[in-house]
Amino acid sequence: MLDVHNLSAAYGQSEVLHNVDFSVAPGEIVAVVGRNGMGKSTLMKSLIGIIPPRSGEVKVDGTDVSTLASHARVARGLAYVPQGRQIFGTMTVRENIETGLVVTGKTLIPHEIFVLFPILKEFEKRRGGNLSGGQQQQLAIARALASDPKILLLDEPTEGIQPSIIKDIARVLRQIRDMTNMCIVVCEQVLSFVLDVADRILVMENGRIVHSAMREGVDEAAIARFLAV
């Protein structure tokens, strides 16, 4: 479903992502872990097209999207939940979700979104900026789901969110996967969340993927060492 081949990305002259290779199968949840500054967010941003890649390919269903603008990638089936949520604060909850709907040409928000996030239905007329952090995270995921993606990218969805809601988010992500057979790529630093949600774990160091392990039989201590500061 998602094939990343030899992907490199740079800020100006300094290359921070070096020849990254990985694939994600439909219905698979892959977690990318690593310390701060190792290139996780850069990887996410170059997958969605906020940072143009220096070289390499990002294939969705076999077609390369690496030269397209973000919105065109969304039309091809990628969806992005950014770090810090970045919902549109002055717009209502409903309007926030509708921005994701634009690319599909539909006018009605799919019923399933409100089934996954009942709180958004309840608060649909409130301004996004007035929700709590956890609710904003749900809103950001709902906005991404509204574009009917095949691949969902999440950048540190647990950042600044209380532990009980982190558990909810893990549950919802698995639920989305079970419902739609979507592939999900999530960047994380919180190991418990990663172990809770992922089928496969990739470890990033200095802009490269240095370790890959299936969830079953993963050596938690080894992963934890990569995360230790």
Binding site: I50, A69, S70, H71, V74, F88, G100, V103, S147
Partner: peptide, 12 residues
């Protein structure tokens, strides 16, 4: 509100 994010949400 946020040009980069609007693009990444699928708005041309």
């Amino acid at each position: 509100a946020n040009r980069v994010m609007a693009d990444a949400a699928g708005i041309d």
